[in-house]
Write a protein that binds this DNA or RNA. Structure first.
Lengths: 186, 186
DNA sequence: ACCTGAACACCGTTCAAGT
DNA sequence: ACCTGAACACCGTTCAAGT
């Protein structure tokens, strides 16, 4: 049984957005990837915004489960953080792709509202998870931990952005190693 | 005497790219901003890539001079870093705009080569300047300082990206304050 | 239920034509 | 030297029409 068409659209679209961004995604190219006509995409997703929002929501859900799994496994803070930074390295290694929410974050001002809110949710999910990991490493003031989690999310996002712009994952690895060596991340 | 047309094109284009990105810049809208027809833009810039590269080069040159001035004034490391982080806050405060090179960095995979190289040069300029400031604060191993400068550039870029995605400069200020409180930046 | 071709107003780019 | 309209192959979107 062939994969569901809607699924194939989303998978192809996700790969393109992580590569070229929301504005680099075109219905005509996407249709070619899937083997249908561009007008047919609208049968599954009324607008490009609806597709973008569905993509981002799914991305957040997937990584929320992926990250939560580390905590339920009982991994320690250092290991969790290593897995976390590996996550972004993996997308870069896969054709210099950015994290979906990372590239959408840059495009924020030209995104439909429905996509924007999902981008923010991805960040919040990351920060909540990071806060749990930080609390594991060193219990402390909740507000201070929240701020640190937000800063770590930003710092890792920036490492990814700079490495992406140079087309070199080694740059990402270097920057993250420097964050660690300086004690900024566990 | 009216401002030079080429200058007016570049200024309008810069504001649009910092807002909507390279892909959000259209010759037709740009022409309206300047008061000419879109075909006329090609008289000054043969292609969109040529315009983008000129924009990025100019941006780097401007901020290289802007930053170097702080060092020739003899400002100390702490003050230099404060001015540096203010620089990105200012662009966010101006209509939630990103640093030109920051938004182009995200769009890297769909940029013409001539624009890509200018984006990399902006980063290198920042890192060299940051390295000089760090050396001022605490002389040390040149390679270690270079790595730290690169990490700071990435961290500040990430703070800007996350704040931009939320449409809230306060997020940038918070994150940068956390970098400082943790001792990651002077 | 799922897909399509044709049309619409939009892109960058080219080019012959104007002044 | 500087500007333009018209054309080209591209965009997302709509819609009537097919199966």
């Amino acid at each position: 049984m062939a994969a569901d068409t809607r699924e194939r659209i989303m998978e192809a679209a996700r790969l393109t957005v992580q590569d070229l961004g929301y504005s680099g995604l075109t219905f005509r190219e996407l249709a070619k990837d899937v083997g249908i006509k561009s007008a047919s995409i609208h049968y599954y997703f009324a607008t490009k915004g609806e597709l973008g929002a569905a993509l981002a929501k799914r991305y957040t859900d997937f990584y929320a489960a992926y990250l939560d799994d580390f905590l339920t496994q009982g991994l320690d803070a250092k290991t969790c953080m290593a897995r976390y930074t590996d996550m972004f390295a993996d997308t870069l290694r896969n054709g210099n792709r950015m994290c979906l929410a990372g590239i959408l974050a840059a495009e924020r001002n030209e995104l439909p509202d429905e996509v924007r809110v999902e981008v923010v949710k991805f960040g919040e999910m990351n920060e909540l998870w990071l806060a749990r990991v930080l609390a594991l490493a060193k219990p402390g003031d909740a507000e201070e931990i929240r701020r640190r989690a937000c800063a770590i999310f930003a710092a890792v996002s920036g490492a990814q952005l700079v490495a992406h712009s140079r087309g070199d994952v080694a740059v990402y690895d270097d920057i993250v190693a420097t964050y660690r060596a300086s004690g900024f991340i566990p």
